[in-house]
Design a protein around this nucleic acid. Structure first.
Lengths: 367, 367
DNA sequence: TTGTACGCGTTATCAA
DNA sequence: TTGATAACGCGTACAA
């Protein structure tokens, strides 16, 4: 029992071998006791457990992982946890994974170097059994690495080709939001969304814009390009953008913000300009974050927490599954309109009857 | 280079030995190349790196951890991620740790069995280099295990004796909130906080209540026991509690809610009863969550994100530090009043002069 | 500067 | 049911 100095300098901790010796059994027996005490006589079981207790033995996770040739952890990569939607998704992931006795290796990445380093870690063998990537577009290089590592991975909130993913139909969501405004009779619509990201063809925000444009086109409504504003994803940036939009000689009677956060900025702008909502200006958000209800914001609901659960389930099935690795399997979650207090008819000038049923396409231009 | 079947059945991945053979060098050299290419001739370095690339070699995290005798991960244990304050703290932790190339092992625990399982994981050797526990009171058994595991640990938002911790002075916070109300001249004060937890002597909420009582006593104000309500930590529960309090024949002119979430419930109650805020009723929160500003809630600000950073820093210093393990080191972070729109003078009846100075200790202890 | 051999703590196999 | 022993892949003395 005396401490044995090792090359590491620290006092050596008791190993399974010490336990075996102490209990007068073989290491194999101890191992069996440790992992589901099958096939061990009650008497030896007692002896071994006593030895474990007396020696304060704690198994080595590293050795176990090495021997088994695989870890028991799932990685989760996400952007910085400032975005409420990322947090909500993470919550769903953790919910599901936490009940499956996996370790969860969380990494938030912001800078490119963090991201690269993280990929190195992620792709190590015996480190992770699976990976969930939240709201991060994989670069070509990253895709290559992931495939090479043969790591089961599920993307959440993005849907790169060739990988399983859980996502929503952002274009349809943009349409839903816009149609809601159109049904109130708005014909002067503005849009505020995220900056386009040069490296990636489509972001959620860009898709929502597409839906917006689609719906406008379908309604035969022309577009004022000054009313399509793309700014950094932040409340204040959106406020500034909205303010300039609303200061123009002509101004929109409704603004669709591609996220609730940005909608908040639009509300700020309206307040600063003394515009009443929804009297002078209707404001539509997207996401249905928790504060949306608090503020009474009309928005499009997307199932954030559930999306996390869904991604985790998908990953687990991928990991245990026999299925061919890495074919794609794109889950698209449903959206729905959540009308609240920030949307209503336009200020009255051309007073349209709020359209009864939708689906009836307006017949033409409205002036 | 042909695939070699192993006892595990899977195709064997390339090891450091394969790389060495492929490059015509020894494993030691490869190892040196891997960990900071010192003491390697430029030519062999090239050869080795080429071999690594050609073989698609990826090091085994498990083997490395085993050989090194230590992992490179820090565990974070927290309650379910529904509470905004927990998330904010986590954000701070992840911020700091993410820049130190540690893996972050996140586990949320809700049920007792989850908690027990987590402790098992946490206490394995070679699994974690350190642990941060957020908003979870350790049981006696858990404390024992942690000490035995000699695992550097920092508690956040709780301050158990014998462990380092980062916390705030909840009693002082309760006083700050209450004094703010007293200075407006309120003399009829209500309190809404969490249910007491039988297993632990003091929760944050209980301490805030103590501060509330202290301040009232110092101001010579008697207590109406019907106005001290303790309910589950949830908006709706607080609303119900506040409603019954406000329905009484006599009712308080101000309520201090021990958390912003509960303050939201109090505001709900006021709305339902047609009470204007702060005209008829002043409402005071605690925490300064993000929505507090949104709602214009007067509250006590505590540095949530920063507390996470602080805990992470403390843990890192503990881990690298020579210091004796597990002595305690209780960091207490500062609070400040954040007065906003939900507090004001009482409805006019007894108009007190705003109390002058604080700091004069009341003449006796109040429990 | 490079190569060799051993140890890390566990699991799995197989003979007893 | 049990015990002995061979992997597992990497780090690291130590010898060359």
């Amino acid at each position: 029992m005396e401490p044995v100095p090792t090359s590491h300098g620290a006092r050596r901790a008791n190993t399974i071998r010490d336990v075996a010796r102490h209990a007068g059994v073989g290491v194999g027996t101890v191992s069996r006791v440790l992992n589901g005490g099958e096939r061990v006589s009650a008497e030896t079981l007692d002896r071994v457990q006593a030895a474990i207790r007396e020696l304060g033995y704690r198994p080595s996770a590293a050795a176990r992982a090495l021997s088994r040739g695989v870890a028991s952890a799932i990685g989760v990569t996400a952007p910085h946890l400032t975005s409420p939607s990322v947090v909500a998704r993470l919550r769903g992931v953790v919910d599901t994974l936490g009940n499956n006795s996996y370790d969860i290796g969380l990494a938030t990445v912001e800078t490119a170097s963090q991201r690269e380093r993280r990929m190195k870690q992620v792709c190590q063998r015996d480190h992770l059994n699976g990976l969930i990537v939240i709201s991060l577009h994989p670069t070509a290089e990253e895709r290559r690495q992931l495939i090479e590592a043969e790591l089961p991975v599920v993307f959440l909130d993005v849907a790169p080709e060739g990988f399983p993913s859980v996502d929503i139909d952002n274009t349809a969501g943009g349409r839903i939001a816009t149609e809601h405004l159109l049904e109130f009779g708005h014909t002067a619509l503005g849009f505020i969304g995220d900056l386009p990201e040069p490296e990636f063809e489509f972001t959620s925000s860009a898709r929502r814009l597409t839906g917006f444009l689609d719906a406008c086109a379908a309604a035969g409504i022309g577009q004022n390009l000054d009313w399509i504003v793309r700014v950094a994803h932040a409340r204040e940036a959106a406020a500034v953008g909205a303010e300039t939009m609303l200061r123009g000689a002509k101004r929109p009677t409704a603004i669709f913000a591609a996220s609730d956060t940005q909608a908040l900025g639009v509300l700020d702008a309206a307040r600063r300009l003394g515009l009443s909502v929804p009297g002078d200006l209707s404001v539509m958000g997207f996401d249905d974050l928790e504060f949306a209800e608090l503020v009474g914001l009309s928005t499009v609901h997307q199932p954030l927490v559930e999306s996390g659960r869904c991604a985790a389930d998908l990953l687990l099935s991928r990991m245990s599954g026999d299925g061919t690795p890495q074919d794609d399997d794109h889950v698209v979650l449903p959206l729905h309109l959540e009308p609240r207090g920030t949307t209503g008819p336009p200020p009255a000038r051309s007073t349209h009857t709020p359209a009864g049923k939708r689906g009836d396409r307006p017949t033409g231009h409205h002036e």
